[in-house]
């Protein structure tokens, strides 16, 4: 095993081009577990912790450009107002020590369906910026996840940043775990209301081979709110609307039974989380008037 430690982004991209089988490591919260338990012996480790630009966030055409190496702790401390859904999700990641090291880019790189950041990012309709010596490309997050723990990165590419539009409406994130801290999600749900374009964003975690959006649920809710004029009136949300939304979210999932939970519970809990989080988001929306 070799340890590569580029000092700049261009060096990192060159290293990745030269060694496409190199495993990038930042916070180490996934990679080191694989190493410690002998589940993986990569030929190269590509350390990304010496690349300052990866650890910064900035504005980019009205969006937040979040460097792939920004930790969850910093998202919570610095971006709670700009990226509320992601900050709520970040607070549920592992433990304080994990949040101090783990990065949002790492969550994408691992592409586990259980990654906590995914539902919040999907709901916020984030894009991901991938780079290689060949150039840079941006793609919607929905196109990034390609399978269980697989993503759209080419062998020579690294994740540079995540681009997220600050919200025009409330966001929520909920996650089911069987204890009150340090737990991998059994199921998770992210919700964003986009009142400026009368749209709804969703994200489902741990209930399909990849994180995914519940498009039909989004469309159903956006249209129902529109049809009832609720975006404008901000009147009370009819309970059956929230319930129906929950059912749509449930239908969007294709969960499995595993050691953490059953498929039927995952489906059920998604419906409940969707309904509840919508009611909270709607209360926020009404209060914000």
């Amino acid at each position: 095993m070799d340890f590569l430690q580029p000092r700049s982004w261009s060096e990192a991209l060159e290293a990745k081009a030269a060694h496409p089988d190199a495993v990038p490591i930042a916070g180490g919260t996934d990679v080191m577990v694989e190493l410690n338990f002998d589940h993986h012996r990569p030929a190269f480790l590509l350390d990304l912790t010496r690349i300052e630009e990866l650890e910064t966030w900035s504005f980019d055409n009205g969006r937040v450009r979040l460097g792939a190496g920004v930790t969850y702790s910093r998202v919570i401390d610095e971006l709670g107002r700009l990226l509320p859904g992601l900050a709520m999700a970040s607070r549920t990641v592992g433990s304080p020590q994990i949040r101090n090291r783990g990065t949002v880019g790492g969550n994408l790189g691992a592409a586990s369906p259980a990654g906590d950041a995914h539902p919040a990012l999907l709901a916020a309709e984030a894009d991901v910026e991938l780079a290689s010596v060949r150039g840079t490309r941006r793609l919607p997050l929905t196109e990034f996840y390609t399978g269980v723990k697989r993503n759209a990165l080419a062998p020579d590419e690294l994740i540079a940043a995540i681009l997220i539009t600050p919200p025009s409406g409330p966001q929520q994130f909920c996650k089911i775990g069987t204890r009150n801290a340090m737990v991998i999600s059994v199921s998770a749900f992210g919700l964003a209301l986009h009142p400026e374009r009368k749209a709804v964003g969703t994200g489902i975690g741990s209930a399909a081979p990849t994180p995914r959006r519940a498009y039909e649920a989004e469309n159903f809710l956006a249209q129902a709110l529109d049809a009832a004029g609720l975006w404008e009136t901000r009147a009370t949300m009819p309970p059956e609307l929230a319930r129906e939304f929950g059912n749509y979210v449930r239908s969007a999932a294709s969960p499995i039974d595993d050691v953490r939970g059953t498929a039927s519970y995952r489906s059920h809990s998604l419906a409940v989380m969707a309904r509840r989080s919508l009611s909270w988001a709607w209360d926020d929306y009404r209060r914000a008037a």
Partner: peptide, 12 residues
């Protein structure tokens, strides 16, 4: 910063 040292690669 508080970290789990088991998850920090030696080279880091």
């Amino acid at each position: 910063i508080l970290v789990c040292s088991c998850l920090v690669a030696a080279g880091q």
